[in-house]
């Protein structure tokens, strides 16, 4: 039996960390080309935060804080976190669609990094996240939200969103790989994401809740991220909530990334 020799140069181009980064970027490129072909995706992703800003500003503001401006100052950072969580849920749906179509079987039969298809999708979805947050901030400002600290605080905010969404994405990837079909993912993702965002201080001050619930809200990573963004954009403590957010992100990553990778390698 003769084994036909593979040119060594080609093999080298397909392995190692540099190759993995390049392959992830290629997978991300695919997602972005998808958006180019169906720009309506941008509307789909953008419409939810826009609706929520208007809903909260006009329907809930009076009840919550008396003035629209006062409530927006509180709730816009919360809505940014909600957007982050919802965009992450999309990761699960896209992942599941790729699995169902057999694209992941093809990826797994190629001599490429095992994590590139997962990381590439997470990166591309971060672009969607930036888009939805920019849209949300623009609408918020139209309705009297103001950045009270400094515009350049947006940079650490987006970096923090990147870290948090990257960590949370692994939970989403896991859901996408395990669920039977995209409808199933949708039910699962939203079933988890909605309580996660509402049992937090994203929309309502924690002091208004019963004591036992306050305990839950305080350990919810969504509260930590909302507090961080408030600190960065509106003013207030920054170091403490940001540190807590980074720790929560690390925990999410350490728990879910190995589970997601296991599910990806698992036999289907």
């Amino acid at each position: 039996m003769t084994a036909i020799a593979e040119p060594a140069a080609r093999s080298a181009r397909r392995r190692g960390p540099a190759a993995a980064v390049r392959q992830s970027a290629t997978v991300a490129w695919r997602q972005l080309v998808q958006i180019k072909h169906s720009p309506e995706t941008l509307v789909e992703v953008g419409i939810q935060p826009v609706i929520f800003v208007f809903l909260f500003a006009y329907v809930l503001a009076g009840q919550m804080a008396g003035s629209r401006h006062a409530y927006l100052q509180f709730v816009v950072p919360g809505l940014i976190v909600q957007s982050t969580v919802l965009v992450t849920a999309r990761t699960a749906i896209g992942m599941n669609t790729d699995v169902a179509k057999g694209l992941f079987d093809r990826f797994r039969s190629l001599p490429i990094s095992r994590t590139a298809p997962l990381i590439g999708r997470i990166l591309a979805d971060y672009v969607m996240l930036v888009w939805s947050v920019v849209l949300l901030l623009a609408c918020g400002m139209l309705l009297s939200f103001r950045i009270e600290t400094s515009w350049n605080r947006l940079i650490p905010m987006f970096l923090l969103l990147l870290v948090f969404s990257f960590a949370l994405s692994w939970a989403s990837v896991l859901a996408g790989l395990l669920a039977k079909d995209p409808e199933n993912v949708q039910a699962l993702a939203f079933g988890l994401m909605l309580p996660l965002t509402f049992i937090s201080d994203a929309f309502v001050r924690v002091e208004t809740m019963p004591g036992w619930l306050q305990a839950v809200v305080k350990v919810n990573p969504v509260s930590m991220l909302a507090d961080s963004i408030r600190g960065l954009l509106v003013g207030g403590p920054v170091a403490e909530p940001v540190t807590r957010t980074l720790i929560a992100s690390a925990v999410l990553f350490v728990v879910f990334a190995p589970l997601a990778l296991r599910a990806y390698h698992r036999e289907r």
Binding site: R30, V33, H37, S38, K101, G102, L103, D105, R106
Partner: peptide, 13 residues
């Protein structure tokens, strides 16, 4: 090279 039972092409591309 592998082609599965369902054409694994990306429809939007």
């Amino acid at each position: 090279g592998l082609t599965g039972q369902f054409a694994a092409v990306d429809d939007s591309l």
